[in-house]
Amino acid sequence: MQDAHSGQDWRAWFAEHGARLRLIARQWTRSEADADDVLQEAFVRFWKHQRHLPGNPNALVVTSIRRSALDLLRRGDRRAAREKVVGDDMETVTWFEPEADPRLAALADSLKLLSDEQREVVVLKVWGDLTFEEIGEQLSISPNTAASRWRYAMEALRKLITARTHD
């Protein structure tokens, strides 16, 4: 992700990282449309104003996404009715490309079934490429708490996959 510091074209950078950034936005939002809105706002802010800042650009862009997602959530009360309708996206739209391997397909489906707290740690670690310390900073929790949520999430995923592959 160091390329963000250089003069690289945003399209090339977004083509490389856009999918995982959108997944990060998606797991913090209630619908596909909200995820697009959040990622658009966050990425434009990051690219225009933050990519030259010192530090890990990966953490910067994740922070920008979280900020936009929280802003959207605060505005959520005013459009609760709409959210209720589109909230069904959570069940019908897959977050990942289709997988031929049934175990991977079960894993992809199981991720949505984790609690919000566990899922955000998993997504930030695997697709955000953040350490437990960086995850702790993002979520305002201690690194130990982040690591603990990760362990519980792994345990839950293992059970969910086992149950699904035996169905």
Binding site: F14, G18, A19, Q40, T94, F96, E97, K125
Partner: peptide, 21 residues
């Protein structure tokens, strides 16, 4: 499980989102 998770491919952003950017 972490390796299996990492092998999952998140869906790419839509062309519409790229156009908005």
């Amino acid at each position: 499980i972490e390796q299996a998770l990492a092998s999952l491919r998140p869906r790419a952003p839509s062309p519409a989102l790229t156009a908005r950017l």
